[in-house]
């Protein structure tokens, strides 16, 4: 495998995992414009553990995910008072605060960045992607996921039938944060150099774009979206300078004509030749 191919595959894997973090949070109807911050927490925590404490990679990634998940729960709790746009604004603020924190937090390099990690294999990134995707696919078949969707569809009704909407929302926030943390930890050990600028508003935006483009109702959607975000500009070299504009336009187009994103359950079924009767019911509007 050439270094070029490896680079692309690594970007897709890292982006895909991070986008899955946004996907889990969005599944409860909460839009996070600050998931890059959870990547940053995972990246710095795991990098610090492997560089200064000689911790193994797997343990460091798990620790990064754990820390990020804890912060996610801490953020998720107060965020319960906020809905919709207000929550989006709060996560945006949290994202910028976190980036700014790593900018002045000198023990982890501050503005000069942090380095010293040893590089991991691309296959490691994809194994992690497989694990996260597998867990989410299993989860999608569980009763827990149904309750998450119920909270998304109608929180009041979900509460009325005895679901604990609060716990579900905070849990989803923590889980999404932990998943993005895994991505950040892998990012740190692939690029070997991290700086706060890696995890700014633009990164959070890209993650949201990957989810909305690829599909926000099935776990494979965000991974497809992340793949498109990496591969399309490579195949369309002539639009390389305009790559982000093209995605902005695609994002608007998808919102207008196919709000559940490119990939949904019906398409996935058609692609995998699994037909289960005629339950081709349309997905509800997913961006809520």
């Amino acid at each position: 495998m050439s270094a070029y191919t490896a680079g692309l595959l690594a970007e897709i894997g890292i982006g895909g995992i991070a986008a899955l973090g946004v996907y889990v949070i969005l599944a409860t109807g909460q839009l996070s414009l600050g998931n890059a911050a959870f990547m940053a927490i995972g990246a710095y925590a795991a990098g610090w553990l492997t560089v200064t404490h000689d911790v193994g990679l797997t343990a460091a990634v798990l620790a990064g995910a754990l820390l990020s998940g804890i912060v996610g729960v801490l953020v998720g709790f107060p965020a319960l008072r906020l809905r919709g746009i207000y929550l989006a604004m709060a996560t945006l603020g949290f994202g910028e605060m976190t980036r700014s924190f790593f900018l002045f937090f000198e023990p982890l390099g501050g503005a000069a960045g942090f380095s010293g990690m040893r590089q991991l294999q691309v296959s490691t990134i994809w194994i992690w992607l497989g694990i996260v995707l597998g867990v989410l696919v299993l989860l999608a078949r569980s009763r827990l996921w149904l309750t998450l969707r119920a909270v998304n569809d109608d929180e009041v009704a979900a509460n009325l039938i005895g679901l604990h909407a609060t716990a579900l929302k905070v849990g989803a926030f923590g889980m999404g944060a932990a998943i993005s943390g895994i991505s950040g930890a892998l990012f740190a050990h692939w690029h070997l150099f991290i700086e706060p600028g890696n995890f700014g508003f633009e990164r959070s935006t890209e993650l949201v774009m990957a989810v909305i483009l690829g599909g926000s109702t099935v776990a494979a959607g965000p991974v497809l979206g992340a793949g498109l975000l990496v591969l399309l500009p490579e195949t369309l070299r002539f639009v390389a300078d305009w790559r982000l504009a093209a995605f902005g336009a695609l994002l608007i187009l998808v919102l207008l004509v196919r709000r559940q994103g490119l990939l949904d359950r019906n398409l996935l079924r058609a692609l995998t030749f699994r037909r289960r009767g005629a339950e081709a019911r349309p997905e509800a509007a997913e961006v809520s």
Partner: peptide, 19 residues
């Protein structure tokens, strides 16, 4: 649409404008 949808589409516009 729910208010998050126009938020996302204006995000698309900002990405285009910046590019």
């Amino acid at each position: 649409a729910p208010p998050i949808a126009p938020l996302l589409s204006t995000l698309g516009c900002s990405v285009i404008l910046q590019t």
